[in-house]
């Protein structure tokens, strides 16, 4: 496990991320309305060490009631239309 933590530390040092310009707090709720899955794969990586969206105070939350932003991906299929409106 220590090797893993060491690798992660080196990773953090090697990726020169710019410091966040202004940190705030924003809660995001993701709704997939018929994307090609690319958005989801990339969104998953956004919270990885490489991009680390958390440093901007961005977070994905568990309930639409907690969210400030609905992040809709895809062209909104007919079947997702009703569900999107509920959210």
């Amino acid at each position: 496990m220590l090797t893993l933590l060491r690798d992660l530390r080196n990773l953090r040092r090697s990726i020169a991320l710019p410091a966040a310009a202004s940190t705030g707090s924003l809660a995001i709720r993701h709704v997939d309305c018929g994307s090609c899955n690319g958005c989801e794969h990339e969104l998953t990586l956004v919270s990885s060490p490489v991009v680390d969206m958390a440093r901007y105070g961005l977070g994905i939350v568990a309930s639409p009631r907690h969210a400030d932003v609905l992040l809709v991906t895809g062209p909104v299929t007919t079947r997702m239309h009703a569900a999107l409106l509920t959210a």
């Binding site: 309930s63 639409p64 009631r65 009703a82 569900a83 999107l84 509920t86 959210a87």
Partner: peptide, 8 residues
């Protein structure tokens, strides 16, 4: 609003 059931 109704309680949240994942869009159902």
């Amino acid at each position: 609003s109704p309680s949240w059931a994942c869009g159902q």
